[in-house]
């Protein structure tokens, strides 16, 4: 037993895009410059030299968006089963758990953002590319049900390659399950703010990523239904450079705003404040809301 492992928590490992994991510097894939890990953290995992966005893990994301020590995790113990007996899936799950030190590809819970109580979920691309199987679907569904019961808003951060192939139709139908829960939460008057990060594709794009009341995205994030290689192959032509990039998707009318990382918390906080029940809003000095 490696004793060090006992003390390593999932949330204190710097995200490094797989480069020099334990080193104190991160080499940027974009510009090749070295930056100390501490600085990268301070800069919200954006390269200080070239502005490249590094992959951000789910737990780190929640820490970044929520008020200090306000997060309580839900359903952490849920783990996937190989219901279909899909070859090599058990081993893949085990490897994903080891690699990510998470039980599944989404983290759910309650927290405060700038003082506002929210239900929050964040997906983790380190766990099988954030793919959605039964457990991911179940956790997000439960979160929306909890939010509807407690009249709370939901803030979600998506990153996913889509439905998880290894669970076959069970994973595809999670799209239906989650969509129904999102709709119930919405019908109960609940606010759902979704933040799309790179990449949000496939079955997640075609369900809860596109069902927010307010849809935000990170700069440059890939957002789309079909994989770009699939389209390229079927059309036999090169795709435009900005194809499926957040900026282009916004221009097409499917995103409300692109928000840089260092502003995400204040922007979401502000939007939450604008959706507080009128009685709970603070009046300004003139007595206006």
């Amino acid at each position: 037993m490696d004793l060090r492992k006992l003390f390593l928590k999932a949330n204190n490992e710097p995200e490094t895009n797989g480069l020099l994991p334990r080193s104190r510097h991160i080499v940027c894939k974009g510009c090749g410059r070295k930056t100390p890990v501490a600085r990268v953290r301070r800069e919200f995992f954006v390269c200080p030299s070239c502005g490249r966005y590094y992959t951000m893990r789910a737990r780190r994301r929640i820490l970044m968006l929520t008020d200090k020590r306000s997060f309580t995790e839900h359903d952490r113990e849920l783990v996937s089963r190989n219901t279909l007996g899909f070859p090599e899936y058990d081993a893949k799950l085990l490897a994903a758990r080891e690699k990510s030190r998470e039980n599944e590809a989404v983290i759910c819970g309650t927290a405060r953002i700038e003082g506002h109580e929210v239900c929050i979920f964040a997906m983790d691309s380190y766990f099988m590319m954030g793919s959605m199987g039964a457990v991911v679907g179940e956790k997000i569904t439960r979160l929306f049900e909890y939010a509807a019961d407690h009249r709370m808003p939901v803030v979600g951060v998506t990153v996913s390659g889509g439905a998880r192939m290894q669970e076959g139709m069970i994973s595809l139908m999670q799209m239906s399950k989650v969509s129904a829960a999102v709709r119930r939460h919405s019908d109960a008057g609940g606010l759902y703010i979704v933040l799309l990060t790179d990449p949000t594709t496939g079955g997640v794009d075609a369900s809860f990523a596109m069902q927010g009341d307010i849809t935000l995205a990170e700069p440059g994030a890939r957002v789309g239904f079909a994989g770009p290689r699939v389209i390229e192959k079927s059309l036999n032509q090169a795709l435009p450079k900005d194809f499926q990039r957040a900026e282009r998707v916004l221009a097409c009318g499917f995103i409300d705003a692109i928000v840089p990382r260092n502003e995400q918390r204040t922007v979401i906080g502000k939007l939450l404040a604008l959706h507080e029940p009128v009685a709970a809003r603070k009046e300004d000095s003139d007595g206006r809301l």
């Binding site: 075609a206 990523a209 596109m210 957002v223 239904f225 079909a226 389209i231 499926q244 282009r248 097409c252």
Partner: peptide, 8 residues
């Protein structure tokens, strides 16, 4: 199809 919002 993508730009008209297939996912949406």
């Amino acid at each position: 199809a993508e730009e008209h919002g297939q996912g949406r």
